[in-house]
C-alpha cells in the first residue's frame, strides 16, 4: 500500500504509525463497528486487508519501510490541506486600512 494514498493501512484503521499491537487491534474493532460487512462491504474489505497487513509485525515493518512511493502524485501530499479563503471577520481587513492611514 502506498503511504501517500488513501489506502494507506494506517489511514484506513485511523491509527498512528507508532501504534502497538493492542492499539491496532482496538482501532480495527472500532472501525468494524463503523463499517460492518453487511452495510459497507467495500470499506469492510479495506479495513480487513489493512488489519491483516498491520497485525503481522514483519509485514508492518515492510509496509513502513518499502511502501513509500517516490512516484506518488504530488497532489496526494495536499490531501486534507484546507482550501483557504477563510472568513475572518472585518477585523483583519480593517487593520490593513488603519495601518495605512
Amino acid at each position: 500500500m502506498n503511504q501517500n494514498s488513501p489506502l494507506d493501512p494506517y489511514a484506513v484503521l485511523c491509527v498512528g504509525q507508532d501504534a502497538d499491537d493492542e492499539g491496532i487491534r482496538a482501532a480495527y474493532l472500532a472501525r468494524l463497528k463503523q463499517f460492518p460487512p453487511d452495510r459497507a462491504p467495500v470499506q469492510f474489505e479495506q479495513i480487513r486487508d489493512a488489519y491483516e497487513l498491520l497485525r503481522d509485525r514483519r509485514r508492518r515493518a515492510q509496509c513502513m519501510l518499502f511502501s513509500a512511493d517516490p512516484e506518488a502524485p504530488l497532489s496526494s501530499l495536499l490531501t486534507g490541506m484546507d482550501n483557504g479563503r477563510q472568513y475572518v471577520g472585518s477585523g483583519p481587513w480593517l487593520a490593513v486600512l488603519k495601518e495605512k492611514n
Binding site: L78, M81, D82, N83, G84, R85, Q86, Y87, V88, P92, W93, A95, V96, K98, E99
Partner: peptide
Amino acid sequence: AEDRLVAAAGDHGV
C-alpha cells in the same frame, strides 16, 4: 497587517 490578513484569509490551496 497585510501579511496577517493574507495568512488568515488567503487562499493557499488552489
